[in-house]
Design a protein around this nucleic acid. Sequence first.
DNA 1: TGCCAGGGATAAC
DNA 2: GTTATCCATGGC
Length: 286
Amino acid sequence: MKIVDINEKAVIEKITKDELNLDKTFNCGQTFRWQKHPKGIWYCAVNNQIVTLKQEEHRILTNINIKDKDWLVKYLNLDMDYAKEMSKINLEKDDYLRSAYEAGKGIHILRQDLYEMIITFIISQMNSMRNIRSCVDKICTQYGEQISVEIHELGEITSYTFPEPKILASTTESELRKCKVGFRDRYIIEISEFVYNIGTFLPDLKEADYNTAIKMLKNFNGIGDKVANCICLFALHHIEAFPIDTHIKQIINNYYNGHIDISKYGNIAGIVQQYMFYYKALCKED
DNA sequence: TGCCAGGGATAAC
DNA sequence: GTTATCCATGGC
């Protein structure tokens, strides 16, 4: 894999769907904002711009200026060889993971915006993936900023940014409930107020190690063990984090005799978790 | 209709 | 330290 410059746009060369699969990566439950245009191009308002990604057989085309290639590498976690990492895990006696890895190959763990992940995974509690996407959509269209851009193959496309903490800190519970977040309204407003008032909090959280980050996050109402681990995994890139939700619990009960020793997955337990989650929740295999 | 969805807070023991 | 109940909302 390498990134080259074609007409000032970054192109990811020599990358297959087994190495990075955009469909799986954007549909696997870690992000709820990327949209796929009918013409097959993924787009989303991230990094203060509309980013487009088009997967071809051996390369990925972008609208990103070559100057921002470092951001792209970090966001898509192109600086990690997933096959190499997985080769360190013994799959021989781990039938479920072997199947899950085969199904989920190509998923990457994104490095997403911290505040967005905090709010998104507060919304995720006791909610369906479909509803989470709907809530996040409504929050962005009601509170975010509209961005439009002209893309050669698509014409003008429009997307909305995820709102800044300041915006949700100053809304009301009844206004926020128009986004159908239900009982999670006060959690969202409370943490938005805190993040806005204590400007050092998010930077400190980014500097913290995994265990410290979990403790800092669980201090808030609405963030427990599972949500804290999702935030650590999808925003802070603590890829040792292993969120246990209702699907993972069922996997543990049905395929691991009620207990799983995640130490055998070393420091990439989060990647393993994501293969399992994708296989169980999104491949409809049973 | 009742049950479940990428859970967590609270009260009760 | 564990357990039961409730919390909005939508799909099936």
